[in-house]
Design a protein around this nucleic acid. Sequence first.
DNA 1: TTACGGAAAAGTGTATGCAATGACCGTGCC
DNA 2: GGCACGGTCATTGCATACACTTTTCCGTAA
Lengths: 235, 235
Amino acid sequence: MQLTHTRIRIVTEIKRRQVIRAGTTVEQMVRAIADMIVTGFFVPGERMDEISLAARFDVSRTPVREALRELGAMGLVDREPNRSAVVANVTEAYLHSMFEAMSELEAICARLSAERMTVDERRSLELEHRASAKLVHAGAEEAYAAHNTEFHTRLYRGAHNEHIFELVTQTRARLAPFRRAQFRLPGRLAKSYDEHDVIVTAIMRGDVAAAGQAAYSHVAIVSDASITFATAKNA
Amino acid sequence: MQLTHTRIRIVTEIKRRQVIRAGTTVEQMVRAIADMIVTGFFVPGERMDEISLAARFDVSRTPVREALRELGAMGLVDREPNRSAVVANVTEAYLHSMFEAMSELEAICARLSAERMTVDERRSLELEHRASAKLVHAGAEEAYAAHNTEFHTRLYRGAHNEHIFELVTQTRARLAPFRRAQFRLPGRLAKSYDEHDVIVTAIMRGDVAAAGQAAYSHVAIVSDASITFATAKNA
DNA sequence: TTACGGAAAAGTGTATGCAATGACCGTGCC
DNA sequence: GGCACGGTCATTGCATACACTTTTCCGTAA
């Protein structure tokens, strides 16, 4: 392909780059495939064979394999020797364990945030939170979901612990496919806002214990809602 | 190589298998390289180019590349596009964040263990712990280190949360290269035993808060010792 | 009709080759 | 003398070829 098809190669290269993003081919594919999994384009349990993926992205199997390996390490796909990769389909028990871990990790982040956030961070957190009230009133699920992600990310960052940030981010990524619909439950938006409010208040006061407690229950509630959906879908 | 050198291939194959372990080539290499990093054969900052590794293990670059990618995902090596992989050399700040995360995670495990361990698990934990007193008296650093690993693993398992088990295991693996010498500090063995004792007692009593507290400080102490070594070595 | 065997097909695992990027080093210019 | 520039070399990135394993499917026999 290198010699005769160079021109074609360049064209597809450009096309690919605009579809995906910058970086090496493998990085692009990791992001692209992860997105497709997280957004539900590929559903848990679905088989992802290297050849189809290679064809779909117009690359050889080599980068696809490396991308799948990375996704496997991230826990987004399951791989077994001589078998196609499969979109990770976790057991209910494991799902529970991830949600519980998420609660614990968020509690840690909230506690550390209450302790360590700079004044700027505290101010932004509060502003952002107050602003989200509008979204609740408008019932803007999509927009609130985006705000929610941002809100939690602030908490993770506020802990000022890079490794914990990585752990919690990674866990959240793995959970993403299973909690897509969390804000569909009636009244969930308003309750979420109230729960955030308790967390913010505790952090502003520097009340470590209260912040941790509030974050823990907040995530636990989200977990219940999500597990309801996830298991209902599987049934 | 496939056709003419099949016999040679088989021979080296056998040689490789006895040196490393079972599984696909990539899996074997991941384990082998991870071991070499964790045991200090490769030191943090050391460059690991694909060609040398391929030659060393007598395989092609393809499985080496995949192994390195996986090790990168595990955090044991740093990779940048078009650059050789490098044994992860973390900043002191990041090291601190990992140790702090470790304390928090161990605290969670201890709390959950106090709550959830079966009677069998509790009994084994206590027996194993008591048995280690002999190692302390004998000053058997190596053996005590092995016991110590086992002790903590019991705690992780006792939490009965698979995902947290993975998070803590993964963090421990990444820290391994930086705390090899922790039991060299004079008197550390006996202190470690005493600290374990507090944890075990709390777990046997089902005292969740005390178990968490004890585990947190135990790990924090180990961290300090390790950081002393790690930074001294780098200086 | 179903169970079994076996060949073909499909797909993964590894090796190898070419392209491309970045590091290194020497040369010429300022 | 130092620095910019250019070429070479070492090494990674990706594509392709082939080997090996697993699955599928079909024909045959019980």
